[in-house]
Design a protein around this nucleic acid. Structure first.
Lengths: 187, 187
DNA sequence: TTGACAGTATATCGAAACGATATATATCAA
DNA sequence: TTGATATATATCGTTTCGATATACTGTCAA
């Protein structure tokens, strides 16, 4: 499951350009679970083309540069199915916001509050964005992804809202390693 | 917020070796939000050493090769605080499991069920793991991260359990692009 | 009417991270 | 005694990230 498979998967839904492939995963309910940049997609498409897993037709356009529309080949569909039959790797996530909160004792309170507030908004915006997607008529896989995304974002937003005092208040218990630093540090 | 900052943050909690730094983020409530491999940590420590943001003392050990214990310098602490004062990047996550479900119409039902079941277990195990961490005496930042991790994992596991039929049943509505393929494809 | 801005579309580059692997030793259980 | 697990450092090739360049279109306001 790398960018090559992601492109194959996108093309299994219909022919597309590299730009459109990015849009598929950028918009809609899916962007929260996987995304890839052009720096990954275009090289991936070139490799797929070299391996005859996709074909490409250049469509000339008036004025604009030609667009390259990619299509899945039979071999490409087989390769995709083979890849989907593998065991998925465990989820990976990277949250700089939470990492910063982890070291919250080194941050000034106003900045902590600022980060936390924009983090809450980030999840609330995510909820709104997902809710605006109409699931009717979509295949089950996409309905499922939409629902899961919504459930997780809602849970995160709610937790953040209900527990923000935990981060905004000063440490009282614990932090035995840093007691000296905390008391002596006003920078 | 890259691996260098992650190492500085770890060292702000106390001196450590590269191996121990990995352990800090691998175990405990934090592993779900950020992790780094040795292929990132050791080069990061070398760069930090070159920039005088950390110091290193080699401790000889009987039999075993010498261990390198790193310590944060004043400049290192300043650099960490400077980095923490920046606006965090938005969360990134990559879920191969959900990506596979997104293309679920190409998967055989037993395999779909298998992936889904191990995905549920993955989140339930995650919940158990987090619940086993005693939050008492820990600084607020870590208590917060623990609670958020638990809330999100719980929400994901619950959603998966309650909606798995959505993936295990066949598509009835929608999928207008693939109708021909679906009906003609039993491979 | 022009100029700024957003959108469409392809492409590349250096830096960073990933995943696997190698090395060496100790300990503990089957 | 074989195998597994833990401690500990390190590298290597591949992949991905993020930023940027190019170039044309449409649009909306000053």
């Amino acid at each position: 499951m790398d960018t090559k498979s992601l492109c194959l998967g996108a093309l299994s839904l219909g022919d597309a350009t590299g730009y459109e492939i990015k849009k598929i995963f950028e918009e809609g309910s899916f962007s929260h679970f996987y995304d890839a940049g052009y720096g990954s997609i275009y090289p991936a498409l070139n490799k797929l083309l070299a391996d005859n897993l996709v074909t490409c037709i250049e469509i000339e356009q008036e004025g604009r540069p030609a667009k390259k529309v990619y299509s899945l080949t039979d071999a490409g569909l087989a390769a995709l199915k083979a890849d989907l039959s593998k065991k998925p790797m465990r989820d990976k996530m990277r949250s700089e916001s939470i990492t910063m909160m982890f070291f919250g004792h080194l941050l000034e309170k106003p900045h902590r509050e600022e980060i936390l507030q924009s983090y809450i908004e980030y999840f609330r915006d995510g909820c709104d964005c997902i809710e605006n997607i109409d699931p009717t008529g979509q295949p089950n896989g996409r309905r499922f992804a939409r629902g899961l995304g919504l459930a997780v974002y809602e849970a995160a937003a709610t937790y953040l809202e209900e527990n923000k005092d935990l981060l905004l208040s000063d440490d009282k218990a614990g932090a035995e390693t840093n007691v000296a630093e905390v008391t002596g540090d006003a920078a």
